[in-house]
Structure formats: C-alpha cells, structure tokens
Design a protein around this nucleic acid. Sequence first.
DNA 1: CTAGGGTTAG
Length: 696
Amino acid sequence: MAYNLCSSPSLFQDVPSVSFSSSSSSSRKFKFRNMSSSSFQPFPCHSFTSQSRTLLHAPHVSLQEPISEELPAEGKSPSYYKSSRIWVNPRSPRAKQLERKSYDARYTCLVNVAKSLDSCNPSQEDVSLVLKILGDRVLEQDAVTVINNMSNSLVAPFVLNYFQRRIRSTREAILYNVTLKVFRKSRDFDAMEKLFDEMIQRGIKPDNVTFSTIISCARVCSLPHMAVEWFEKMASFGCEPDEVTYSVMIDAYGRAGNIDMALHLYDRARTEKWRLDTVTFSTLIKMYGLAGNYDGCLNVYQEMKVLGVKPNMVIYNTLLDAMGRAKRPWQAKSIYTEMMNNGLSPNWATYASLLRAYGRGRCGEDALFVYKEMRGKGMEMSTHLYNTLLAMCADLGLADEAFEIFEDMKSSATCLCDSWTYSSLITINSCSGDVSEAERMLNEMIESGFEPTIFVLTSLVQCYGKAGRTDDVVKTFDQLLDLGISPDDRFCGCLLNVMTQTPKEELLKLKYCVDKANPKLGSVVRYLVEGLEEGDGEFRKEASELFDSIPEEVKKPFCNSLIDLCVNLDLLDMACQLLDLGLTREIYTDIQTKSQTQWSLHLKSLSLGASLTALHAWINDLSQVLEAGEELPPVLGINTGHGKHRYSDKGLASVVESHLNELNAPFHEAPDKAGWFLTTQVAAKFWLESRDLVTA
DNA sequence: CTAGGGTTAG
C-alpha cells in the first residue's frame, strides 16, 4: 500500500509527492499523531490563502475534491500525478521533512478556516458557509484543529454544532473539550458552565480533560474557589484526577491561598507515583515564591532534581523570579550560572527576572552587565523589557542609563512608552531630587495620554518633600484625591517620611493630608504635631490601633518615621514608647543580642531617630544590669552597618559615632570589622557608673 | 500547532 501524502504536486512547488512501499515495515511509524495511517486523507490547500474572502468565494474548491477514493495500486501512479513523483525512503530525513511540510500545509489551511470563523457572524448560516469548504465528510481531527485555533467564543458553539451534525464520534467529549478551550481563551467562565450542562444533558460523560480545562479557566478568571468547587465535583462524574489535574489544582489551591491543600495534593501525586513533570514543579516553585517561602522554592528545585526531572527554561525563569522577589541576587546569579552550564540560553523572561533580581538586590554592576549582554546579543526588545530595564535603573538610581534607555525606546518603532515607562522615569528623577526633570516627565506622560498613577504621585510627594516644597506636596495630595485614587499605605508612609524632613512650622499642612489619607495615622500624628498632652497610655493605645490596622510590610517604615518625627520634635518619651511598641510587637527583631562573650546592639534596619532611641534604651538596660549587681560580658558592640543608609544621605555609622562622642561613650570603631563600634567590659562599666553619678 | 497544566512589573 502506498501512502500518498500530497495528492496534487503542482500545489507544492518544493514538495514532491511521496510514496512508501508497504514492504518497508517502518512505514507504520510514518503516521500523524492521533491518526491512523489509513484514516488519513490528504488534500491540497491551494485555495487557502491568508485571505479569508478568497476562501469563502471559491466554492468550486473543496478540501476533499482531488482525493482519490481508492489508493493507487502498488507501483502504479494515480491519474492525478503529473510530474515530479519521487520515491523516498521513509526512513530518510528527506521523508521526515516531506511529512513535516505536508502536515504543516494542512495545518495552515485549518488555521485559516479558524480565522475566518473568528471573524464571521455568530449564526449557523454564516458558520456553515465558511465550513462548507471542508466538504461533507469532516474528519474529527480536522474539526478539533479548527476549533482549537478559534478564539471567538460567540461563534464557537455554532461551529461545535456544525461538526456534531457531521461527525459520528465515539469520543464526543473531545469536541466539547476543545470548545471549552475557546471559552477559556476569552475567559468566559459562564459560557463554560453552560456548555458543561449541555454536555451532561446530552448524556456525554465529561473526562479529566473537561475538568482540567474548566478548572484552569477558573484560575485565569481569578476564581480559585470555583476551581476548587469543580475539582471536588469530579468524583461525582466518575473522574479520578490524574497528574495534569493535580498540577492545575496545586496551582489553583496555591492561588486560593490554601497552600497546605496544594502541598497535600503534591504529596498525594508523589505517593501515588504519578509521573511528575516540570510543569508541576514550576507551579510549586511559583506558588512558594508568591507565598514568600523562598527556601521552599529552592527545596522544590532540589527535590525535582533528585527525582530525575531535568529543569527547563521555565523552571529556571520561575526560580530567578522568586530569588528576585526574595532579594537574593547572589542566588539568582548562581541559578543563572547553572542554567548556562546546562546549555540553555536566556530568553526575555530570563533577562527580565535577572534585571529585577539585580535591581532589587542593589547589584548595579551585575544589572548593567546584563543590560550590555542583552544589547550585545541584539535581544529583541518589547515595551515590557524596556520597562524592566527602567525599573532596574530606578531601583539603583541610575539616571544617566535610564535616559539612554528611554531614548533608545523612543526611537524604537514597535515599543511604545506606557504609564510604567513614565512612572520609572519620574521615580528616578524624584529620587535624585531633580524636581524640574520629574515635572517635565510628568507633563510628557500626561501629553502622551496617560493619567498620573498612585506610583507617580507617591514619587512626586517624595520629590517635593525632599526639596522642601511643602505646598507642592499638598497640591500633589489633592491631585491624587481629584483623580479618585485613595491613598494606600505606601503613599501614607511617604507622607510620613516627608514630615520627618519638614520644618516644624509647616507640619500642620501635612497633618491635614495624613488625617484625610489615614485617620488612624492622623490621630497618632496629632500627639506629636499638636503637642497633645497624653494621659493614661492614650498615645500607646492609639499607636497600637494603628499598627493593628496596617499590613506587616509597612509597619517598620511607619514606626521608623514616627520615631524620627518624635526625635525631631524633642519628644523623647514618645519616641521610647514607640520603640518599645515596635519591640513588643516584633516590628523590630534581634536589635539586642547576647552571647557569652559579647552583647550587641544592631541598628542596621532602624532609621536615624530610631537608632538613637534604641541606643538610649540599650544604655539604660546596661545601667540596670550594673545596678542589679550583675556583670557585663567581656565585649560590648554596636553594629551600624556600613555604606549609605536607606534613611539618610549620611551613613548611619557617622551619626551614631558623633552621638557616642557627645555622650563620651568609650565605643570605638573596630579597625577590622566595618560598621562595628566596640568597647570592653571595664571601660563600659567605668563609663556607665560615672554617668550614673552625674545624673544622680 | 497537534483535545487538558507552568514563566512578564510598582
């Protein structure tokens, strides 16, 4: 028997017809996936140009027309062979290539049908008109390919109906499943549920594919509870979840915030010896990353390798992204190195993750090296990738590089600037205190048709605050409200930070903003700014309520700024109360540590005011130890960290050092340990006792 | 691309 893969050679200039001798046993292997050799009916595709109009108005052309009903007898050419008939050994690469080309051509035809359907009216008549071209005998496989390539969820049900009337299938769920996929593409969960009901009513049994499609649709529609609901429904339809369903559900549970359940499923999948593949692992890594469990990400990665699953690009990119979130640039680097050693070359997602990791991890040199490498490789740029570069520059304060990248972006024909682009540029200029350049960018943003976002306005508040332009801070605040944006915690934190840099006589203007933005914060600030007398722990109670009401990640910056404000206003008692509150609520942790040989004070994560307050508290604690007749350890140390401090232009070290000098404290900078001030038990004891004499 | 699952921002 000869398989004739291309019945009309003239249609394929470079694809000659092929026949395979039945004597070759390998011809069995030569078939298309999901299709038995005998069921394959080749057809020419000459009428299928990319123009769907041509397609529709070519009624004399049928996909099936030139097909010979009888396959040619061995060694005899069918009548429609004209020329260029070549015998090809089915084992040869040439045969594989021909198979490929023939398949591709057929596939392209069906994709074009799908495209025409997408742009036609959602009616049975119009759908029939397009589909007539497939002839009366439609192959199930072709129907699947057509629907699978559609994206119009209004037309899809008519197409399904058309095919159902022409195809007698023993596996009717398939056409339903592939139609469900179209709904998934347009995120139409309601349509999905409706079609499922129809399936049931027609007595067609849903299978795992049905459920995993519905579940993953719920996921992309941000309806994780629906995903769970449908998963739990499976059993009542006689479906046992398999590895794909587990993989989807691990993700759905993760996104629903039910990580325990996700891990439970993973355990089950593992003990039931499902073949776990990279998709499941990347899902797990992603889930741990979003939950902030970064060691969990690395554990999954290790476990995956132990189980013999080879990491692919998606795994590496997901890991890199997680390490970026974790602010662990060094781990991102070693993962990237491993990726390269495994012979994989970075794509856009790799670069985006790396840039983010190095930007957030303050690794300027590494980040710029990535940028150079991208340029050197001629990496195809996108708006998103440009924006990632600009965000990296904003993280690292690289104004010149940002300008260069921005110019490059504007000269690109395909990558349009968007509100993210301007946002990064405004942030960069705001951080470097360039008010006029920040304003110029804001204007350009507005002229380009983008409204300022809360991120832009937050940056501007910071910018004006730094420049001492309190009225413009207030103006920016009002602009935020005018745009109907409600101030978030970051914005309030920024206002609070501006207050720590504002002279006392202007603070009332900012208090107005804080009051409006967050009344709880306003009532705490009132004690400081209005010099409110506090009786009976009122202040502490208000501050406690404030910290109860804000999310974990903003507690420390709020507390730092509030303490700074106290210190600026000489309200040391309230500063101490806030520090104590911060310690008891574990907003600050491990500030004081004790070992056999050394007691230490760690100030690195504290603002300047909070550092000085913590220093005073520590000195008081040490005095009390002596008063109680107990001993100090051999060494006492203060760790300020070195380098530039987040909250100050001056390093924290120099501020603490001059304060220690003022106090005549015997701490001295350690020559071999940067950022440490040390003293001995004897010196400390002598100083503390003489100090107590003075204050007594 | 081949009836189901995974990687792009404050």
